[in-house]
Simulated scan of single mutants.
Amino acid sequence: MNPTEELFREDAHLLRCEALVLGLEEGGGLILDRTVAYPLGGGQAGDSGCIRAGDQSWRFADARKSKQHPGAILHLIEGEGPPPGTPVVVEIDAARRDKHRRFHTSTHLLCALLPYPVDGCSITEAYARLDFHTDEAFDKEALQAGLDRLVAEARAVRHRWISEEELDANPSLVRSMSVQPPRGLGRIRVIEVEGVDLQPCGGTHVANTAEIGEVRVTKIEKKAAKTRRVVLGFDA
């Protein structure tokens, strides 16, 4: 089975696309030839949404990477779904994607403000958290002020691709201790927050830090002797 074309890699604001059904895995995983739905991975939750074929529709509660077919993305639906070869329309939940994009870029701003390795990450529509490998204490008010400043500066956020050789020549670009960029494709996707941060990332992001809005540092925790956790939330 061919890999699913990942439209979200090039345009995280794209919410809808036309696609063709390739198959259905046991457990309700509908595989399409292309999709706007981001699958769970890299600490970021998967998208949810709806798949339509004519006057029929199927909700998918999550999107995951297939273990049986490398490169394929599963849309977790209930029931049999449309048969292979059926043209469909995929539409993701806009509010969920919006929260994911805003939170994910916010975590990159945290990485710019806190120059420590990251050893844990979770990005959902309800909150985002990063675990930093350090025994240093964090100042909550100073961290909040830093986030407010970077959001207000309306810095451009863009993605580009570099070669695996370029990454090997700049290993400090990788901030995560637990999630490594995928290898074997010949290129690595990186996210750049203009003048602030540059690191490998496959997730969905805003196009400008001003889109993040009022993100709040809701909690700072000491999780272990060498782990400090920062949790982010939105006022609304």
Rank of each mutant, 00 (worst) to 15 (best):
C111H: 01
E153A: 15
D47Y: 13
L24P: 02
E26L: 06
R149P: 07
S66D: 09
G49A: 12
G120A: 05
R155Y: 10
V230A: 01
E125A: 14
A45F: 13
P70N: 12
L76F: 14
S176M: 12
L32Q: 06
E78G: 09
D197N: 03
Q199I: 00
L32C: 15
D93F: 01
E6W: 09
A112T: 01
F132W: 07
E80M: 14
A210G: 11
G195C: 02
Q56G: 05
A137C: 04
L74T: 13
A45G: 13
L15E: 11
C121Y: 03
G146P: 05
Q144M: 09
G27Q: 02
L232H: 09
R9Y: 08
F132S: 08
E164R: 14
T105I: 01
T204P: 00
L130N: 03
P70V: 07
P39G: 09
E194I: 05
Q56M: 13
F60G: 04
V230D: 02
P84E: 08
A94L: 02
E25H: 04
P181V: 14
A224W: 08
G213F: 11
C121E: 13
L7A: 05
E80G: 14
Y116R: 08
L22Q: 15
E25G: 09
G203F: 00
P39W: 12
P182Y: 12
I191L: 00
L198F: 01
L113F: 02
P87S: 15
E25R: 09
T4N: 10
H100V: 00
A45E: 15
S57P: 11
L40H: 12
A45N: 12
S57Y: 04
A126W: 10
P182K: 12
L198K: 01
H108S: 00
S66Q: 06
V230Y: 00
F132L: 08
G27S: 04
I51H: 13
Q199L: 04
G233E: 02
P83E: 15
T124N: 03
H13E: 15
L30H: 07
R160V: 06
L40P: 07
R155G: 08
A126S: 07
V179D: 09
E136Q: 14
L15M: 14
P181C: 11
G195L: 03
H133E: 14
